[in-house]
Nucleic acid binder design. Structure first.
Lengths: 248, 248
DNA sequence: CGGGCCGTTGAAAATGATCAAGTAGCGTGG
DNA sequence: CCACGCTACTTGATCATTTTCAACGGCCCG
């Protein structure tokens, strides 16, 4: 269980659902000399202004990216009337991993605030990985971790109702932020209601209603983009699904 | 675009949604001598009888698997009343890739029919990948391909209604089967209505109703587990979402 | 000051879930 | 070989949840 932490909870379901946050990074396990070589690959820093795209769906592979500062949303923005946010990425997260299989980006990546990324030339990275087994191992882990993440989302979209989904979203965010050294109970959303809704498969109005419900039940106080988690255990209980057996 | 095929269609949405099927395999690009070394890793063949599990969620990492014969479903089977099928795997598909990041399986894998898999010791595979860059490359591609797959499912669950989802499911299955050399219009489902429903986020009764709808509209004839796709283009049109603008 | 975006809330409508009943097919054991 | 029981599937009626449509307030920025 090293490198992986779980939300502790008395509810087994919450344990499964809770997004495992790995302090995964390409440089883990490298000597300082080798880490230097890796850093040389990531020399280029790119600034992306709020609202503009780092890459667009269909762009050909050139690099994968690591978020340094800021936050991104990735997804399909307005293809034929459909919209789907597929993920939010912040400091330490990777962008563009899906590109490896197809050779072009499968998503749009748009900055939610003024941000900065390191670009990593994927071909050079692969070459380096041949020299450094630890890099190869970390890359595979990174990819596998992304799969686990996506599976959690599929579970959430397939099994949970609106309140449960939002609870799951907030708890995941809270945990991610705490791993980054921020408060797990008080934080600021970088994304709109619409983005959240698209991510978890609901309309923005439904998100609002769930927020109102959480406020009325003392679970969380969300005003605008400011979030105060008031009863994290209550939110976990929601996700667990146990409440469905009790009539409220 | 080599190694990747798309369903051709006049509807741009269908193009995005259509699952890209890659003839990905660990041995692509290897000399016969190197392929031999890879094959040695896969020496062990395991038979799994219909209904029994190849591995269970939480089992510690020992191997990843390649399906040789048969079909599997992977997912969370009855955790705390929740159920979620996360994928169906058939000949050529890999099982257990999520294990790389966490060290234990994140799913149950159950055979849908009497099946046979090759087990691949992951640690030995990583060692081999250090020697053979092509293996490393193929492994990364395999993982990335899985991410693309999962993203398609998230899109499907987040944006499409019941009929559109089932249409997407059938078209994907049809394409997968045709890549394996089978008919893309006449095939047999290995999974129950309930499994399909769980996979695409619907109840089994809803699946039945969608099947009835497809039959009434001449799109597909599904009796029991036998499928006849009658109008693939019509199914693609459904997924495209264009029909929502026209009142029927 | 005005326009646009974002967020909130209400009421009506639509979609899918749930509950219920009945049918079909299959394998097993008498 | 048939009867039995089991599972999978189908269809109808009702119910619950979420979407849709609409109206309104706040805030920021030009």
């Amino acid at each position: 269980m090293n490198e992986v932490t779980f939300i502790q909870s008395q509810y087994p379901e919450a344990l499964w659902l809770s997004r495992s946050v790995s302090k995964l990074c390409l440089s883990i396990g490298l000597s300082s000399r080798d880490a230097e070589r890796l850093n040389n690959l990531m020399a280029e820093r790119i600034k992306v202004r709020r609202g503009s795209a780092l890459y667009r769906i269909g762009d050909p592979l050139c690099s994968i990216y690591a978020v340094r500062v800021g936050a991104f949303k990735t997804g399909i923005m307005s293809v034929n009337g459909h919209n789907q946010i597929l993920g939010f990425q912040m400091s330490g997260d990777m962008l563009g991993l899906e590109v490896i299989s197809t050779g072009y980006y499968g998503c749009d990546a748009v900055a939610l605030e003024d941000s900065e990324v390191s670009s990593i030339n994927y071909f050079q990275l692969e070459t380096l990985a041949q020299d450094l087994p630890a890099v190869q191992h970390n890359l595979s882990k990174l990819l596998s971790c992304e799969i686990v993440r996506d599976r959690h989302m599929m579970f959430l979209m397939g099994n949970l109702n609106s309140k449960e989904r939002l609870a799951g979203f907030l708890l995941n965010l809270s945990q991610q932020l705490s791993v980054l050294g921020n408060s797990s109970t008080n934080f600021v959303l970088k994304m709109s209601r619409e983005d959240i809704g698209s991510y978890i498969g609901l309309r923005l109005e439904t998100i609002c209603r769930c927020i109102a419900h959480f406020r009325n039940h003392g679970l969380a106080e969300i005003t605008g983009r400011d979030v105060k988690i008031l009863n994290a255990e209550g939110l976990r209980y929601l996700i667990s699904g146990l409440h469905r057996n009790v009539r409220d």
